[in-house]
Structure formats: structure tokens, C-alpha cells
Design a protein around this nucleic acid. Structure first.
Lengths: 253, 253
DNA sequence: AGGTAAATCTGATCCAGATCAATACTTGCT
DNA sequence: AGCAAGTATTGATCTGGATCAGATTTACCT
């Protein structure tokens, strides 16, 4: 029974070398033969629905996951019940790298909309990286980017005002969408105000007010989850006395 | 002239296999022969004085550095002149991993006291990791820990009160000192109130007041930079309704 | 379609911690 | 030793954003 599913799924598979995200993902810089080897260990699953879990806190660490379509949020649960969002992950971005050290996942990863991921079993990946120097380097780069990204966010959370945080968040999304071939100025948010607030260390009411405020300032046009950036420069200006943390907020070059 | 220095320095060298930090550092899990190979690429420098830079923002990324003795702070400079501390690094901890992705350092690293570091040229390290699977894995683990650590700090900065932040900071230091064979309850801070505040997203006055407050509560005994934790349990209690982020704050197991 | 729960917006109030300010205390420099 | 500059403490005030509360809209379910 699972066998038949696998076969039908194979038709849905997009090989790494035909994947539009390859230049953002593990295959970056690899030659065709190496990509085939990587391709062979990647497990592609059927898309999961909104709310589905990729992994949960405490799960044994076996694989890392690359978002193929959709959006993933990573979060931790506080003892008092509230959740703390630690990241939003767009297509081409990797989740699960935090699990390597302790051999179990230290946060949960959940689909914010219909989402497909490529699962890369980590033990296989480690074997491959030993023989494919370019793959090893790319994995180091991805992990380094993760560190850089989080450092940028730390700086943002440590010092900045609510306005600066939301501006940085929107610009980060803008750049990341742009790098994926989407509009830099018009997109849909797949997360709630609550989740944005949690991620940015703000109350959801503050996020809501800021959207209204940005709209009054003619910086944005907000319709529910749909965002249109009317003036990118104004948004960048809001971050002008900020560390140049923008490029640290998740924009692959 | 530099040649003679190098020779005299050789006497000061501690080979990785004789280094007390080996179990926290890259050699963890390697056999004797592999450690020798690693040892051969490590560059050991004379200790640097307080204030000396290991690298600065924008420097080309060539090496990662392991703190051998002393303390290192990493920080970024904001356009308006203020600096933002992004980390404090004790012996056995690695700095510079953020530079891999963009091939240049995105923060600066400075000695907070007389400090010695082991420099590990990254291109050599990458070559070695290809042939020593255990070393590769350990490097992945170290990078993963870095990610975990920063995630924990993000959560702390996003949600917690000033009191919780300082408690988490002190406990993180306590655990890390303990893991290095020092007292878990009595140590010297090598950083200023200002720097602690910057790291925790607090004003230096707030940090100062909290030290006073903790002292009044009989949790701490503070004398300038010298800290004695009188009641570890009380300190842990302050974090009780916190994400279990403590183990994410830099405590190698 | 209609009903219920969830998400969002908006206003009013409050407070933790920033900022401003003044005074010690250290430490380094000549 | 003595001055200057950095560092820490403590107090007084102010404010950005949290929290509380309510109204409104939207999404989901059968």
C-alpha cells in the first residue's frame, strides 16, 4: 500500500537538477554528476496541509528539510502554553539544522499553508559531503547563513523599536521573495499578526497598529494578508540608523 | 624577526591532544592520529592584550578561532556609533563561523582580557573534514550548537523580562564555567555592565539595578566584577515559566 | 446559507524599563 | 601622587509598547 503511493509520487518528483530552487539550495555550485548523487538520497513527500508538522520538539534528528513550496514556521512551546516563533522559512530555505548537536530537534516545524518539503537524511548527506567537497562547502555555507540570520535578528530584537522591527521583517520578506522570482513589492503573508508579533517580540495589537500606521504613511497598502509595498525607500529609511543587519536577515545573494 | 618569535612560541604551544579543552573543541570524538592531523594545521599565536582584535567586520574570512584562554566578545557597529554585542565566548568556544557564507566576517571579535586563541585556517579544515568523518561531524555539531544558542537568545530577547534575561545570562555563564572545570557559583565577569546590557537588550542602568536587586534578594553577592551565586535554585526559579532555553544558551553537555 | 470560532482592528489604561541626571568609585596615564 | 576618563550606582521622570476590553470582520464547518 505505501509502495503504490511511492510510485505515484515519483511522477510528482522534480529532480534537483530541474528544480528552480537549485541555486538557493544544496546543489549550488555542484556539477551534474554530483547533483545526481545528491538527488538519489533526497526523499520527496506529498505536500502537507496547513498545520501539518514536519517535526516536533524532542523528535529524534534524522534529516534536514528544504522547503520546496509553501511556508514553514519553526517555534518552541513555553511551559505556560504560549508559543514562541523562531523562524519563517520560504522555498529553498532549510529547516532542522538545529537538531544536529543534540541529535534531537529543539523546536517544532509546522506548515503555514500547503507545503512540500524535500527531506535529506542527514547521515546520508554526511557521507556524501565527504566525497563531494562542493557539497560540504555549500552545507557549511547554509549553516553559516543560518547563524548570520539569527545574529541579525538578535540585534533587531535587542535594540530596535517596534516600527523598525516590522520594517525589517517586511524588507526581509521582500528581498527573499524577489530572490525567488516573485514580486519584491506585492505578496501574501502566510502567517498571522500573532505569529509575526511572536517572531518580532511584539504584541499582536502592536503589529496590527503598525500595519495601519504604515498604510496611513503611504508606505504600504494592506488588505488582510495581502501586502503591497508602495514605497520601498521609505521602508529602508526606517532602518537607516540600524546595523546593516538587513543582509543578515535571510537574503541569499 | 618574526621567525624567532615563532620558534619561541613553539615552546608555548599546547598540542590539541594535551589541551584540557579538547573535549569541548574540534577534537571531540577523534582518535589520536586524526588529532595529530588537526594539530598540524592549527596556528597558535601569542596571547593578545585586552582590546585586541581577532578580526573585524568586513575582514576576509580565512580562519575560525577557538578561544584557548581569556574571553572574547563579538559585536557589530551600528551606523550611529553604538555597538551591539552579539556574543561572549569562553575557552573552548569557536568564533568566526558567521564568515563562511559571505566569505567575510560580519561582526568583529575583540579580547575582553588577555586572551589566546587557536587559529584554524578554514580551507585546510575543510580538506581535513573530507577525510576525517568524525571531524566533519564535530564541526557540524559546533555550528548546530551556534544556531541553537542563538535561537535560545532570540527567544529570551523576544519575550522575557529584564530579570529573566540577567538570570539566564548568569546561569549560562555558571554552566559554561562549570563545564570548564571552574566554579559554577563564583566567577569574575570580564565584561562591563554596558556590554552585558547591550547583549541582553537592556540599558546598563537596568543591569546595575538588577545586580543590586539580586543582592538584596540574597541570590547573589556582587563585588564589582566578582560574582558569587548564593542560591542557584532561586536563579533557576526565575526562569521557570521560560522556554527551556537554558540548555540552548551555550551549555555543551 | 447560517452559525460559531478565530483573527483583526481600535481605543483606553498602565507599567517595565529607557532616558536623563547627579554622584561616586576605579583605573590608567604622565 | 594626582588628574582625567571611563565605569558603576542610585534616584527621578518619561514613554513605547504591553495589556485589557470591545467591536468588527473573516474563515470554517455542516
Amino acid at each position: 500500500m505505501p509502495q503504490s503511493k511511492v510510485i505515484s509520487l515519483n511522477k510528482l518528483k522534480v529532480a534537483c537538477k530541474n528544480c528552480g530552487l537549485a541555486k538557493l539550495c544544496l546543489p549550488l555550485g555542484l556539477d551534474s554528476g554530483d547533483i545526481d548523487q545528491l538527488d538519489a538520497i533526497v526523499q520527496r513527500h506529498r505536500p502537507m496541509h496547513r498545520g501539518g508538522h514536519i517535526f516536533q520538539t524532542g523528535d529524534k534528528f534524522r534529516s534536514i528539510y528544504v522547503v520546496k513550496t509553501g511556508t514553514v514556521k519553526t517555534y518552541t512551546q513555553c511551559p505556560n502554553g504560549t508559543e514562541q516563533v523562531v523562524g519563517f522559512h520560504l522555498p529553498g530555505e532549510v529547516v532542522g539544522l538545529d537538531g544536529i548537536e543534540s541529535d534531537k530537534h529543539i523546536c517544532s516545524a509546522k506548515a503555514l499553508e500547503t507545503t512540500a518539503v524535500c527531506e535529506v537524511p542527514f547521515d546520508h548527506l554526511e557521507e556524501l559531503t565527504s566525497t563531494i567537497p562542493g557539497l560540504q562547502h555549500q552545507l557549511f555555507r547554509l549553516m553559516s547563513r543560518e547563524i548570520t540570520k539569527e545574529t541579525g535578528l538578535m540585534v533587531l530584537l535587542g535594540k530596535s523599536t517596534a516600527e523598525e522591527r516590522l520594517a525589517a521583517f517586511l524588507l526581509s520578506l521582500s528581498v527573499r521573495f524577489h530572490n525567488r522570482g516573485f514580486s519584491a513589492t506585492e505578496f501574501n503573508l502566510s502567517m498571522s499578526r500573532q505569529e509575526i508579533g511572536s517572531y518580532l517580540g511584539l504584541a499582536l495589537e502592536t503589529v496590527s497598529r503598525l500595519f495601519t500606521h504604515f498604510q496611513e504613511e503611504k508606505i504600504l497598502l494592506v488588505d488582510r494578508k495581502h501586502i503591497q509595498i508602495l514605497d520601498l525607500d521609505l521602508l529602508y529609511d526606517l532602518l537607516s540608523n540600524q546595523t546593516t543587519c538587513l543582509d543578515k536577515l535571510g537574503a541569499p545573494s
